[in-house]
Design a protein around this nucleic acid. Structure first.
Lengths: 137, 137
DNA sequence: TGTATTTCCTATTAAATCGATAGGATTAAT
DNA sequence: ATTAATCCTATCGATTTAATAGGAAATACA
């Protein structure tokens, strides 16, 4: 299940991308327009900023803006920041690998085999999708 | 993230499939061999039985057995029983559809578009994989 | 018939995670 | 100064997850 954090984050990024070129976008504006609790959205955009996807400007006329072109912001990066590992199981994660404590041999593990396939297919989608794709129409 | 329930369930099914033809397999045997808490596994196999994937026999020499050939047990079915919806978001779920309360128009929702792609790719894997595939090797 | 063995069922619990809120500190424009 | 925005930390309630507990029901077999 996709967390609300990720869902809200993606919607907010899309909203900002659609306004690109203009001045920074206020959290309150996004929250209202996308029906997202403002305080919650604040914390989400903060993590996106800390991860380098967004930039921010404080004070009056402040807000958030994209650090790169929408076409250069890949879903792999956004998803890893917001949702964490793309793999469904740590033992097949590329960026967050962890051995299963119950599993003596990954080579022989049926779950491992299956989840590698799922991971590869999901990765393909996220690698080939950018914020520009989400924002069009 | 894949729940332990699903992980354990898949491992147990694989274990049973590899023994097919023999008599029912005891929970305690699976639990020990696969490092799964026995009581937890009991409840998992119970739901698999209630959903029609497994059959069971009580009492001495009892245990669980597959109701169909491994090659006829599709991952779509098993995953839906153990993990629930395959889609990451209810608004793109085929079997568990639910409208988002915050989203006025699914057609224009960027998250919706993206998650449909992920769902379709994941579905393709699960539709083309059977328990026989998991059990081989 | 009785005993051991196994699934079946319900309830409970401890811990983790999630979604959200609260309250104020900091920064910047005017 | 005042206003408006992000930034930061802490906390809370609800839900879910993983696991445990305790026994009821059924079956094989002596």
């Amino acid at each position: 299940m996709l967390s609300k954090k990720t869902k809200y984050g993606l919607k907010a990024l899309t909203y900002i991308a659609r306004k690109e070129g203009e001045s920074p976008v206020r959290v309150s504006e996004i929250a209202e327009s996308e029906n997202i609790p403002q305080k919650f959205l604040e914390s989400i955009l903060l993590t996106l900023r800390k991860s380098g996807v967004l930039g921010s400007k404080k004070g009056k006329h402040g807000g958030y803006y994209l650090r790169h072109e929408p076409s250069e912001i890949k879903m792999t990066d956004v998803m890893r920041v917001l949702e964490g590992p793309i793999a469904m199981v740590p033992c097949v994660s590329l960026n967050f690998y962890e051995k299963c404590d119950d599993c003596p041999d990954e080579e022989k593990c049926s779950v491992n085999k299956l989840m590698i396939q799922v991971r590869d297919n999901t990765l393909q989608v996220f690698r080939n999708t950018t914020l520009a794709d989400l924002s069009s129409i």
